[in-house]
């Protein structure tokens, strides 16, 4: 398997010098995301995110299984992010690279452990049956910013997904198909989103949403996960250089603002999609969702 092409010494020097002169290669501001695009598939729970040249598809699927014996009242939720040679020939099937491990860990921390999804609502019969939700993250094209893009994709897909309704009679549970009853949305408690900061010159310069070339030149990265209410879900820092506490606070402030923008963007896209699906205006009548 060929190794990932590293940036040459000249390119590296060029990027660094440009940053010293406060210029990014693609002319963006230091705190600007690349153009973000989000499309939903025909089915529920498929989100296709394009962040510049990076492209990630998240797909949610559901299954019925027995819950874990130590967590009888919870459903199962699992996020699987596997790289394929499609994104880069350096990714090998069955042999995770560091980036892949970090991506899965961050998604796990950001979405699953922050309790973004109410797993208790996935329980059908305590100790016997529950929904097992699975989020598959497919990296289609890789130009940096995988963590941000994957997090957006998974959160958008979760909000777009509808699970089939169930009827429970004693110990018997019947899953109602789409034809029988309108599927219901998941109960999502909050929407965490990741913002990755890349630090250069010992934290002197901090970039948002670095592309692949910038990622290879950076000294370290700080990943901040927040929701739109301004709550920090996790902060991770990979790389050797030190970051001043004040710079970190600054990052969190910036992240808070970016997350609000992206949340709003996802919301508008979801509404557009809902409008498209709600052709006859019958959705409200069909809905089996309980009012909170």
């Amino acid at each position: 398997m060929p190794r990932e092409v590293e940036v040459s010494v000249n390119e590296r020097a060029f990027i660094q010098q440009a940053l010293q002169e406060n210029v990014r290669l693609d002319g963006r501001a230091f705190d600007a995301f690349r153009p973000l695009e989000l499309t939903f598939g025909d089915e529920y729970g498929v989100a296709d995110v394009q962040l510049g040249k990076t492209r990630v598809i998240a797909r949610i699927s559901v299954d019925v299984t027995a819950p874990l014996p130590e967590r009888k009242f919870d459903g199962i939720f699992q996020i699987v992010a596997e790289f394929s040679p499609m994104a880069s020939p350096a990714f090998e099937v069955g042999r995770p690279t560091d980036a892949e491990v970090i991506l899965s860990r961050i998604l796990e921390k950001a979405i699953r452990r922050s309790n973004a999804l109410d797993t208790e609502s996935l329980c059908i019969i305590a100790g016997l049956k529950c929904f097992a939700l699975r989020a598959d993250v497919h990296i289609i094209d890789h130009d940096g910013g995988l963590i941000d893009a994957s997090c957006i994709a998974v959160m958008a897909a979760l909000q777009h997904f509808r699970r089939p309704d169930v009827v429970v009679e004693g110990e018997k549970a019947t899953i109602l198909s789409v034809r029988e009853r309108e599927p219901i949305p998941l109960s999502i408690l909050h929407q965490p989103l990741c913002v990755t900061f890349s630090c250069y010159e010992d934290g002197e310069r901090i970039l948002i949403d670095a592309n692949l070339a910038e990622e290879q030149v950076r000294q370290e990265e700080v990943i901040v996960t927040m929701n739109r209410h301004g709550e920090v879900c996790q902060v991770a820092k990979y790389g050797g250089a030190t970051v001043e506490p004040l710079a970190l606070l600054n990052c969190i402030n910036m992240a808070s603002q970016k997350v609000k923008e992206i949340s709003k963007f996802i919301q508008t896209k979801l509404e557009e999609d809902a409008k498209k699906r709600d052709a006859g205006g019958l959705m409200a009548e069909l809905s089996a969702e309980n009012e909170r």
């Binding site: 398997m1 880069s88 094209d141």
Partner: peptide
């Protein structure tokens, strides 16, 4: 796709497949 040497998305009868080819490589 900009990283792969060749790529195609094919949609037919509800099936959608994304294919990419890298080659000839090491």
């Amino acid at each position: 796709l900009h990283r792969a040497d060749g790529s195609a998305t094919y949609t037919h009868n509800g099936y959608c497949v994304i294919g990419s080819v890298n080659g000839p490589i090491e």
